[in-house]
């Protein structure tokens, strides 16, 4: 692992920024810098999975990555930036719920892992999900919620996608600590996640990564 990847893994924000600057000054290609950072992000994910890191640490790694990306993205040609994208992920908190902590964590993590995320925000009506799934052609849709009163609403979204003839094109994952296998079955979703990294892994599997 390179020193930049290690700095990211150790959540040493100042050192990450210093090393990125240094590499840029030495003419290193921004895409290679991102690759090194990705290695650090993957290591953070492993530490999280093994119980050494907790959610805030996972989130802060995404935060560091975001700052790096803001710096590097303008330097990367559009075409190669697109090549870096794993795929599209549409996500929103379902109607009746305005909570977004969980959703935002997943959005940040997905972006740090290289996904193009279309974040529809909170209290998203059924029709909006249908419209954006159709327009974006996404292969994954994430329905987020905190309130356990949203089970029927999640089901409504999935039924509407079926009626619109879009169900076969998109895998649907419901997310939030209120989800479970029972809730997945009730709503007709393909998967559920009670923590963020499960959602990222699922999205990667859908896109064959």
């Amino acid at each position: 692992m390179t020193n930049l990847a290690e700095a990211l893994r150790d959540l040493n924000e100042d050192l990450v920024n210093e090393l990125v600057e240094e590499k840029l000054a030495n003419g290193v290609n921004p895409i290679d810098i991102i690759k090194e950072c990705n290695e650090g992000i993957v290591a953070v994910g492993e530490l999280f999975a093994s119980g050494h890191y907790y959610l805030t640490e996972l989130m802060f790694s995404a935060e560091i990555m975001q700052v790096v990306m803001e710096k590097l993205e303008p330097m990367i040609a559009k075409s190669s930036a697109a090549e870096q994208t794993i795929g599209t992920f549409v996500i929103g908190t379902v109607s009746g719920d305005i909570h977004d902590i969980g959703k935002n964590i997943v959005v940040n993590l997905l972006r740090s892992h290289g996904f193009k995320v279309i974040d529809l925000g909170v209290d998203v009506p059924v029709e909006k999900f249908v419209e954006i799934v159709r327009e974006s052609g996404t292969k994954v849709l994430g329905l987020s919620a905190l309130l356990n009163s949203t089970y029927p609403e999640m089901k409504n979204v999935i039924e509407a996608l079926t009626e619109a003839g879009l169900r076969d094109q998109v895998k649907i994952i419901i997310g939030g600590t209120i989800t479970s296998e029972t809730v997945r079955e009730f709503t007709g979703a393909d998967a559920f996640a009670t923590e963020a990294l499960t959602g990222v892994k699922y999205a990667k599997s859908v896109y064959g990564k």
Partner: peptide, 9 residues
């Protein structure tokens, strides 16, 4: 007592 059991069980 699980939430989903109270609601769906």
């Amino acid at each position: 007592i699980p939430t989903d059991m109270l609601i769906l069980g």
